[in-house]
Design a protein around this nucleic acid. Structure first.
Lengths: 148, 148
DNA sequence: GGCTGTCGTTAGCCCGGCTAACCGAGCCGC
DNA sequence: GCGGCTCGGTTAGCCGGGCTAACGACAGCC
């Protein structure tokens, strides 16, 4: 209703709504494609650890944008599956650091393929223009997801 | 890392992964912005009912891509909040139809603004190009989320 | 050595997916 | 019209994943 935004007035107001719904739906759809017992949240955390190297639980919780207890549980499940190894920091024995294991790396690469299969198939059905639209949007989506 | 995201073949293989992670993160980020007691799933269902008009629970479950029991619960919560009204179909007394109430419509428009505020603010910070990238990608995202 | 702050965990709540099993209404067919 | 199949919806129960509140262990600073 209020068109005080910059460029496209009406489009600019509707766009957030559309984007939110689209992201939510696709996220739910992706969740349904789950394979194995490693859940999306776990995989996301695992990916972050692989990307950043050894991390404390607090750092990981911050990166994943979840509360500490949530990360405690997620990390616990990852450890149960042998995907990460945890050790207590030698300097500060309060902090627990976790790192990806070889098994974790394996699962990461393997799962990346399997898990993206659904999406890859779908995206193969898209036109070049559509695929480019996605490619162009991904960095922006990531920027929107970041807190700052 | 590299910005070689044009229409290359390598980009096509990495893209699904990137998209999946981006969507997941943004989805989680959006969830954190929740206001009030109406949850994302509830809001999504409510939106669908508003869009399609009176729907049976089964139809709504199909649209929202959730199992019937999940929709039963979601619809129940919506009804508790007075956002939808349910009635048993006169022709087939097995089916339960639900429609948006005035209060539901109110909340929908009001919440749309409030809930998208976070996203709207963020998107206002984007460049025109980035905003256009999102606008172009939204329909594709929706298509990806669809089952067929 | 004791206070205070911080990291992580535990306990406990809620939402939202799911499957399995059940109920009730419709729709047969005989 | 009565058995039996089908189908929509619900109930029961499980699990993951968010959260807050409260607590224990450690660090650090007087």
């Amino acid at each position: 209703m209020e068109a005080t935004t910059t460029a496209g007035s009406e489009a600019a107001t509707a766009l957030p709504s559309q984007l939110r719904l689209a992201v939510l739906r696709l996220s739910r759809r992706l969740r349904q494609e789950a394979v194995g017992q490693t859940t999306p949240s776990q995989l996301s955390a695992l990916t972050s650890v692989a990307k950043h190297g050894e991390l404390s639980l607090g750092e990981l919780a911050a990166i994943e944008r979840v509360a500490p207890p949530s990360m405690t549980r997620i990390a616990g499940r990852l450890e149960e599956q042998g995907l990460v190894a945890r050790r207590t920091d030698s300097a500060d024995r309060r902090v627990a650091k976790i790192a990806v294991t070889d098994a974790g790396l394996d699962l990461l690469t393997e799962t990346r393929n399997r898990r993206d299969a659904f999406l890859a198939v779908r995206m193969a059905e898209l036109s070049d223009d559509e695929r480019e639209a996605i490619a162009a949007a991904v960095p922006v989506l990531e920027r929107l997801a970041r807190n700052d």
